[in-house]
Design a protein around this nucleic acid. Structure first.
Length: 109
DNA sequence: GTGTTGACCACAG
DNA sequence: GCTGTGGCCAACA
């Protein structure tokens, strides 16, 4: 025990939102940023997911860039694509196929 | 406290 | 479609 997860409240929010992404769905950095109350903090969101101390508890691979592009991944975009494909999310040329269909949009408001 | 960096976003050309 | 520029936010040296 003694879970010394030295993380900030900001990261906690990011992970919390990220964990809400259901199987077979994806979200974006900007969307998560909005959900945590900082719509302009998309960068900080990516940073938080990068260090991701809760991996693979936190499905950071389900977070992509705006427009359906993969973005980045700690193990490489290729791995990310493979994982997404396993979850039923097809990726084509670094972009998600039917992005709007697999995009988990949280209810704002 | 300042400057740089980063898994970003939006706009202009 | 790509590149350059500006902007936002948090973490780190």
């Amino acid at each position: 025990m003694n879970n010394m997860k030295k993380i900030t409240e900001f990261q906690k929010l990011v992970y919390k939102e990220t964990k809400k992404i259901p199987y077979g769905k994806v979200s974006t950095y900007a969307q998560i940023a909005k959900n945590i109350g900082n719509p302009k903090a998309s960068r900080a969101v990516g940073n938080a997911l990068n260090i991701n101390p809760f991996a693979p508890v936190v499905p950071c691979h389900r977070v992509v860039r705006t427009g359906g592009k993969i973005g980045g991944f700690a193990s490489g975009e290729k791995e990310k694509i493979i994982i997404l494909k396993k979850e039923g999310v097809l990726v084509r040329q670094g972009k998600i196929v039917d992005f709007t269909k697999v995009f988990f949009k949280k209810k704002i408001k």
